[in-house]
Computed example of a mutant assay.
Amino acid sequence: MHTYATLAIVQPYLPRYRVPFFAELKSRLSADYIDVQVVAGRPLGSQAARGDDTDADWATRFEPRQLKFAGRAITLAHTRRHWAHADGVILPLMGTSLDAYSAILHKGPRVGLWGHVDSYVARANPLDQALERWMVRRADQVFAYTTRGANLARRWGAAQTSVTSVMNTVDTKELETSLRDLECSPSPVRAKPITLGYIGGLDGTKRISLLAQALMALTMRGTSVKLVVGGQGPDAHLLDALRTSHDIDIRGYVSGVDKAKLLQEVDALVCPGRIGLVAVDALVAQKPILTTDYEFHAPEADYLKDGISMFSSPDSAEAYADLIESQPWRRSIPPADWQYPRIETMVENFRLGVLRMMNLEA
């Protein structure tokens, strides 16, 4: 009779898009005699405003707190009680996470760290980066979002076999099916205005203010644009304020068929700020993303090809309006240029990393 090893995976919170990944990973690792428990916090700040937090019967919840110190936010999660007696724990790779230091410094579970590795979404803080390098060199396994992060972890001193490139993505099966079904239905008559879509949280990282300014610039030029928004967040008011004078359809959080309908309606997606997992949605629907030369995109932006699935303008409202007005998506792009990582591959990559971490690899 086999004895199950136990693994805890700690997350800041549990967004809906992560549920299929964790459910499949739990199933796959169960076949390897590893019992997985997800330990997820309640979302704070802009994450809470996104409205995508959820629960699952395999998830244990905790109430995180943040301590402001010297201009930095230190996460006080106190999750150790949930994984101290487990055989392994995977924690966020964050220089401000006290739980990660606790796991590395105390004798106990095997330790994995999961994160971007590189400073994608903000200018690198020298202290944070030094601390994260220290963590990476001491973890039993590093789970990097993409190949670029994995390569950096190795340059920081992690062993070749102690790094897993996860290839972060979402479950695209429902979206793929919904898009195919919609293709079989009569297509709506496309109106004359340029039709743009936005999917994701409406917050400062996405630079909704620049998008609003670009829409106003286009209106001043007499260019008709319709914007369909699938998302919510603290900056929703910036677009809501324009609805009386602009053609803006705000639908709130979208998924499944609703997301597919939005993607079918639009010519392109707009994201003047941080590009994250919306890159996968864009590739599935074969709709390019219009962005700026903003320097803090998330790792998933690496999946896009400049001039094919992503078009960029200089970082100003007028230049972004120019890009939208030029309609660069009108050129034909071969299907081979719309490849994206599948969740089945992400689960398998993560599974193999867990087996290496736990010294259970065949």
Rank of each mutant, 00 (worst) to 15 (best):
H2Y: 03
T3W: 05
T6M: 06
I9T: 09
I9L: 09
V19M: 00
P20G: 03
F21L: 04
F21T: 04
F21Q: 05
E24W: 05
E24C: 08
S30V: 10
S30F: 10
I34Q: 11
V36G: 07
V38T: 05
A40Y: 00
G45D: 08
R50V: 11
R50L: 11
G51Q: 00
T54L: 02
T54R: 04
A56V: 04
W58P: 09
A59P: 06
R61L: 06
E63Y: 05
P64Y: 00
Q66S: 15
K68F: 12
K68Q: 14
A70C: 07
A73Q: 12
I74G: 10
H85M: 13
A86G: 13
A86T: 14
G88V: 11
V89M: 05
P109I: 07
R110Y: 13
V111T: 11
V121W: 13
V121E: 15
A122L: 15
R123M: 15
P126D: 01
Q129V: 12
A130N: 07
A130I: 05
W134Y: 08
R138E: 03
A139Q: 06
Q141D: 07
Y145L: 07
N151R: 13
A153G: 05
A153P: 01
Q160E: 13
M167H: 14
T169Q: 06
E174K: 14
E174I: 14
S178G: 05
R180F: 09
D181S: 15
D181L: 15
P186Q: 12
S187L: 10
A191N: 10
I194W: 01
L196T: 09
G197W: 00
G197R: 00
I199K: 11
G200L: 03
G200P: 00
S209P: 02
L210V: 10
L211Y: 11
A212K: 02
Q213W: 00
L215W: 00
M216W: 08
T219M: 11
R221H: 03
R221C: 01
G222H: 02
K226S: 08
K226P: 04
Q232T: 14
P234F: 10
D235Q: 12
H237K: 12
H237Y: 11
L238C: 07
A241W: 01
R243G: 02
R243V: 09
I248L: 00
G252Q: 05
G252R: 07
Y253V: 15
S255V: 08
G256Y: 02
G256V: 02
L262M: 10
L263K: 08
R274H: 10
I275M: 09
I275A: 08
V278M: 15
A279L: 05
V280P: 02
D281G: 03
A282T: 07
A285L: 01
P288K: 06
P288S: 06
P288R: 05
L290C: 08
T292Q: 04
P299C: 04
L304V: 08
S309D: 08
P314T: 13
A317R: 02
E318N: 11
I324R: 04
P328F: 10
R331Y: 10
I333S: 08
P335N: 12
Q339I: 14
V347M: 07
L352V: 15
G353T: 05
R356F: 06
L360C: 14
